[in-house]
Structures are given as C-alpha cells and as structure tokens.
Nucleic acid binder design. Structure first.
Lengths: 353, 353
DNA sequence: TGGCTGATCTGCAACGTTGTACAGCGAGGA
DNA sequence: TCCTCGCTGTACAACGTTGCAGATCAGCCA
C-alpha cells in the first residue's frame, strides 16, 4: 500500500532491511514470509508491518540459488503467428499461472538450428524444465542424445515414442488417425475424388514429419474405403500458411479440375484453399468439400464455416505440465508417451449427413 | 558434444568442477567464460576443453544474484487469443531474442485485478523490467502510483501521457487519429450513413479506453466532413471478438436498415460484422462498406478482403525495448511518450477510388 | 642492474536466501 | 523441585558467481 520511496528507484529492500525495522533476525523474517508456523502472532504482525512498510518482495534469483528451484518453466514452440500455437501458448500460460509457475516463452522461428540449441539447454541454465514442440528436429536427432539437459516434455506429432532421450516424456496427437477420420468423413459424405494439400516434400522429407503422418492417414482412409491412394493427388506447399493453401489450389485445379474433396494439412491451408476455390468459381461444399485441421478460431467464422479436427489442447497442456512437474520433483524413470484425444467438428464446408 | 553422465541426471557442473579438471582457479574459468582478454591461449584452451567435457553452462540465478541483472524481460498482454496480441508477442520475442534477452510472457486474462498485480511487481522479484499492455487499468490508477516497482514501458492506446508513474515510459498508437483516418476513408468513398461497432459501455466507461478513443476519432472525422455525429449510431459489444461483431450487426440492422458504412473497433469485430451482414443479405462493399483495425492476418483473407488500419508493430516493439533497456541501464529521467505510426490498408471491403 | 609495466592468474568477499543446529524460555509431569 | 518438551527465535554456512585487490613473473628501458 504505502511506499517509503520518494523519487528515484533505490536498492530494493531485502530481508535484512525488514529485519532491522521489525527488530528481529533475518531468519525470522524469512520464516514469516514462508509461513513457518512457530512464530508468535505479535512477532508475525510486527514483521508483516515492516514488510508492508518497505515493500519487500523476495528475490527469485537468491531463492533459486539457495533452493535449486525457480518455479519457471519454458515453453518452446515454432511461432505464435500460427494460431494453433498462439492458442496452445495461451492455454499453457493459463494452466501454468494457475499452478503458480512463471512461463518463459521461446520461439524457434529460426528453424532447426534454433531447435537444437533449445535441446542443448540454451547457453545458460534457467528455469526448472521445458515443454518443447519441435518442428524440424526429428527422432534421428533425439535418438542420438544420451540424456536431455533438463526435465523435458515433448509435445506434438511427429516423434516416435521409441526414440525419446532418457529424462524426457512425450504427449502426442495421433495425426495419422485424426487425418484418417477427416478423410473418412468426406468419403462417407459421398466424395470420391479427393486430394491432400500440405505436403512438405523438399524441406522436410521425413516420413514422420507432421505432414508425412497426415498424408499417411489420408492414404489409410482411402485404402479402407476401397479407393486407390495413388490416384489421389498430394499437393506440396511452401509453408503452412493461408497463402500457401490458396496457391496450391490454383495449381491443383489445373491438373485435377474434377476434384470434389480436399483434405488440408491445417486450418490455415484450408482457409487459403477456400479462397483459392472461390477464385476459380468453385462453391463449397456443393462442388468441393473441404476439411482442415486444428479447429483454429477462424474455422467457425469462415464462409462457409470450416469442418476440422479439434485436438484437445487442454488435455495436452495439462498432461504435459503434470509430467514435467513429476520430472522436476525427481521422477527419473522411463520415458512415457501419452496420446491426447481429438474429435471431428463438422461444419458447413463438408456435406452434412 | 560428449557427455560424461551415463544415466540419471546429476548435480549440474559448476565453475568449481571445471576448475578442478582444468587445474586452474575458479576465477580463471569465469574469466574464460566471460571472454576476459588476459588469459594465455594455452590456459584458455585447457579450460575450454574442461567446459566441453563437463557440459558446463553458467547458472543464471547466481549471475543475477551477483551482478543484479538477468537479461530477462517480461511482456504482459491481455491474451494471446487476440491475434493482435499474439503477433505483437511474436514480434517482441523475435526482437528480444535478437538482442540476447529472454522473454517471460504473462497474460492478464483475469482482468483488472491481475493487471494491478502486474503493476505491483508480482509477488517475487524476477527479471530486469517489464513491457506492459494494460487493458483495464487506466490513468486514474497510474496517476496515483508513486513510482513503478521496476523499469516499465507501457504500450497501447488508452493512457494519457500526463499521468505516467515516475520511472515508466509509454509507446502509444494514436487511436483517435487512426480511426478518424478510417472513417474519413469511407466518407471520401461516398458513404454517408455510418455506424461504429465496438463500444464497451458498461464494463469500461472511461473516455480514454481504446474503445472511447476510437469512438472519438469516428466522431471527429464525421464532424470534419460536415456530418452530425449524433446521428451515427455507436453500437455496444460484449467483447471484441468475432461473435460480438456479428451479433452487434444483427441488432444494428434492425434499427438502421439503411446503413452503408461500418467502422469497427478491431478486425475481429469487422470479420464478425462481415458474417452478420451476410446473414442479412447485405453485400460488401456494394451495400455496406466495412473497415477494421489492426490488420490481423485474417484481414487479407476474408471475403471480401478487409480494409483496415495497420499499426507499425515493429516500430512499437523496437521503441519499447529501446526505452526499457535505457531504463534498465540506469536512465532515471522523466517519463517519455512516443507515438508509433500507422497506415490505412485499403482492400475490397471499402469502395475503391 | 634496478625498477617499472603489463600480462596472467589467484583468493577473498559478497549478492539474498534458507536448511540445520541450537539456545532460551515457560509449562507440565514426575 | 527438577527435568523434559515444545515453542520461539537466532547464528552460521552454503548455494554459484563475479568485482576487487592483489601476487607473481617476464620483458624492457634507462
């Protein structure tokens, strides 16, 4: 409430300052701050007054040095410009703040090299653990690591649980299954000439990239519905943003004008695809049905509203944080993998039953 | 590269461990780590080998305790679910990481109480300074503060530079001017029956809220174009999300069916408004012209593409970080206010000249 | 040759906090 | 009455790091 400082910022108050005013030892002040029970009420009150008078707040750096824990967790994601990640980050921050933890947010927009630096633990030791959504680093790299540098939980899609480095856990989303669900939804709606938009062929050829897994799901669904997967085009994109989806559809329609269904790598591509289809005078869903992936907030507001796959982000975040905190608290056992659930959200862009 | 640890995570290596292996003093290792020049090349090499062998990395907490600086800056914004803030956050993280700083991201989704806690400096001392975009706390609260708790730069729109607490700076966006520009754009395109969508009457009645400032700009532009501002409706919304814009337009069209131009509080409202207009069979821009605010990435992909105001986020972020770092480095002078530029991005949703 | 300069390296103390050990005290039981 | 025990408070050391004040030594100039 009140502040003694008059003008310029001064040296912040410490336990010593409070102790002098309250005429107790430093340790007693510490005991009050930490709610140690055996403090006489009158002493406690005196100390609390002194704390209020000075505006004392504990310095995290000293606590961390002494106790070894900071309450800080790092979240590393590729980029907040993807709404999937900005919503994931918000969900994460809410959950972490609710558990009394502070979040350092690191983005690895620079790509693979930056992801590797994250895995190596940056240049300085900071925080208690990390939740990391890799995009470029794959299981080949992870398999070769002897041990992670700090408690680590991977989140995402394209890792294989067999190759997690010791000391880390993994919460995954079953991309293949989810994309198969989306594809089946179109097939069951009567579409027969499908395409997949969102291959990352050149830059990211690994079969376990998220694009690879989604393509796999697309093919599996076709196969199960007695279609020949090799007759359905897989369209490459430069990146997974709207502009890429739009441009890809332009190319696709030149070679496959009779297309009637589009499975997209994510919602942004799908939204771009809607624009691209409109450019060519195709109406959705009458001429072409479209499904996306992520259920980003734009999906329900596009015209037509986008059918999409909704991964359970809250589950993902809660579970990842649970596992990370177990690691921080000393769990040293084997790596664990948990699959987060998803569901299909049917909207206007696909035929309704 | 190599790691001596075999299985479980052990006590992390310290300067002492490295010093023992390299057979030098702790201080010499510190000197090597910090690139102190007067170290014999042979000694330096020996120490660097030992660092590589142990995987040593300095512990930030100890550095901060000793030197008083952590290189951590906090960014506090209302919520990453608004794409304006998620893009701002990404821009900020890129800039901060580029300058070798680590970002703690705090979101104040809980509203005013949480913003006040941010201003009071949280419960623990952490990081070197903060960049804070308040949404609910206004100049009334700030004016009453004797001094900010840590180096602080406010960003945003609805503060008045006259009431900044000592020790803080401010980078603002001229909302009133920008909204006037947007409004003038419609008027100059020949529209005469405008409305503003995005008043936050109940929850946030202050004339200096961002909604208040934008309304002010709307009115100023009408006035300058010889229109009577009192005849143009100002529509209230519950929040600034898409759903609110859509719902507001539904209400508005019942009372003002002859409307031909819409100035919206932000892009999300505008995108919702596009949906709302479509719901009522109005075409954009033929029947009704629409402008938004923020130039969020969706704006260029909506149908029709949205005319909007683009604030210069890079400028905003760079300037805020510059000022914060000056404060951290000891600047104790008067509060400064800088206005970030903006420009109108004309797209399909408004009549083209 | 003596002293001076600069390069190289070291030891000490301190940053603010908390765990451990212990001292003093009054109350209650033997 | 004496002893024990629980409550209350204190002193000390240590977490890992770096600024400071030196110590040592080689080279060099006068």
């Amino acid at each position: 409430m009140s502040t003694t400082s008059s003008h310029a910022r001064r040296r912040p108050p410490t336990l010593r300052d409070v102790a002098e005013i309250a005429e107790v030892s430093i340790k007693t002040v510490s005991n009050v701050v930490n709610d140690y029970p055996h403090v006489r009420p009158s002493t406690r009150a005196r100390v609390q007054d002194a704390i209020a008078a000075t505006g004392y707040r504990p310095q995290l750096a000293a606590q961390q040095l002494r106790t070894g824990a900071s309450g800080i967790v790092t979240l590393a994601v590729p980029s907040l410009t993807f709404s999937y990640f900005s919503h994931l980050a918000q969900t994460f921050i809410d959950e972490a703040q609710g558990r009394g933890r502070t979040v350092v947010l690191h983005t690895t927009s620079a790509g693979r090299d930056e992801e590797i630096e994250v895995l190596r633990g940056f240049r300085r030791r900071l925080g208690d653990g990390i939740i990391f959504n890799p995009m470029h680093v794959g299981e080949d790299y992870l398999a070769q690591m002897e041990h992670v540098d700090q408690p680590t939980v991977f989140i995402g899609e394209h890792l294989s649980d067999a190759h997690l480095p010791p000391g880390s856990d993994y919460v995954r989303i079953d991309n293949t299954r989810a994309t198969a669900d989306a594809t089946a939804h179109l097939l069951e709606g009567g579409r027969t000439r499908l395409a997949f938009v969102g291959a990352m062929g050149r830059k990211d050829p690994a079969p376990h990239s998220s694009s690879g897994l989604r393509i796999e799901g697309f093919r599996q669904a076709l196969w199960r519905h007695d279609q020949d997967p090799s007759r359905s085009p897989i369209v490459e994109v430069g990146d997974w943003h709207r502009a890429d989806g739009r441009e890809a559809v332009h190319r696709l329609l030149e070679t496959h004008p009779d297309l009637d269904g589009l499975v997209c790598g994510n919602d942004e591509i799908a939204l771009g695809a809607l624009a691209g289809l409109r450019d060519h005078g195709r109406s959705v869903p009458e001429d072409v049905a479209v499904v996306g992936y992520d259920d980003s907030p734009e999906a329900s507001f596009s015209h037509p509203a986008l059918t999409t796959i909704r991964p359970d982000k809250e589950f993902l975040v809660r579970t990842a944080l649970d596992m990370l905190i177990e690691r921080i608290n000393g769990y040293e056992g084997a790596s664990r993998t948990i699959t987060a659930p998803h569901r299909l959200v049917a909207r206007e862009s696909s035929p309704q039953p």
